[in-house]
Design a protein around this nucleic acid. Structure first.
Lengths: 119, 119
DNA sequence: CGGTATCCCGTCCGATACTG
DNA sequence: CAGTATCGGACGGGATACCG
C-alpha cells in the first residue's frame, strides 16, 4: 500500500508535497512548533530572520495542507495560537532526521565548498 | 558534539545546507543514485520531466557540496558516471524518510487541500 | 498583537536550440 | 552522449510601512 505513489513519475502529486517541505521556511516553522502551540510573535522571535510576510505565507500554506491548525481565541488584545496537527506531528519525525543531518554535516559540506575554485 | 549548530540561528550555516536539500531536484537526483552510479542520460530518463539544464545544475551543486562524484571515463563516445559519495549516501537515509512520508501522506494532504475554498 | 499592503529584485527553472 | 547557450517568465521572498 505504500507504493501507490512514486516520486519519480512526472505527474506524481507527491512532488508538490516535497515542494512544500522544501520551501524556504517550512522546516523551521514545523520544528518550532514541536514542543507545543505557539503564537505568531513567538514564532517570529524564535525563527531568527523570518519576516512577518514569510511567516504568514508559510503558516497559511501549512494550514492549507492540514499540517498545522490555527486557533484564534478572539480576545482583546488578540491571541492566536498555532499548533501541529497529528499529520504535522508525523512530519516532525522525518524532518528532525533531516535537520539533524544538516547540523551534523555542516563541516563536511563547508569543507567541500571551500575546496571549490572561487570564480 | 551534535549541538554545535542550531538551525534556528539566523546566521547558522546549516540553513544553506537545508536550502540545498530543499532545492527543486535534489531529492530526486540523490534518490536516483541510491542503487549505484548512473550516467547523465540514465538520470534524465529516470527523473521524469527534468531538463538537461536543471539536471546539470543540480549535479554541479551536489558535486560542489561533496555529495556526489563525477567520473569522466574520457572515452569516445563520451561516458560520464555520477555516484554518491559516502557523505551523499549518509544523506540518503533522512531523505528516504522524507520521500516515504511524502508518498505515504499524499492522500491526507490532497484531502486537506480540497477542503480549501477555491478562490 | 497579529497580521496586510506594496514594492521590487533576484533566482529558479522551463522551453528550446545548439555543440564537441 | 553529455552537455552549453540563451531567453524569458513566474515566483519566492526581503524591506518597509501601515492597520484593526
Amino acid at each position: 500500500m505504500s507504493k501507490a505513489y512514486n516520486v519519480m513519475a512526472a505527474t506524481c502529486p507527491s512532488r508538490t508535497v516535497l515542494h512544500r517541505i522544501g520551501a524556504r521556511w517550512t522546516v523551521f516553522v514545523v520544528n518550532a512548533l514541536a514542543d507545543g502551540p505557539r503564537r505568531f510573535t513567538e514564532l517570529k522571535g524564535h525563527i531568527r530572520g523570518i519576516t512577518p510576510k514569510a511567516l504568514t505565507e508559510t503558516l497559511r500554506s501549512l494550514e492549507a495542507d492540514g499540517l498545522i491548525s490555527r486557533h484564534d481565541h478572539d480576545e482583546n488584545p488578540p491571541r492566536v495560537e498555532y499548533a501541529l496537527t497529528p499529520l504535522g506531528r508525523s512530519l516532525l519525525i522525518p524532518l528532525r532526521a533531516v535537520r539533524l543531518w544538516a547540523e551534523e554535516h555542516v563541516p563536511d559540506i563547508e569543507a567541500a565548498r571551500s575546496r571549490q575554485p572561487v570564480p
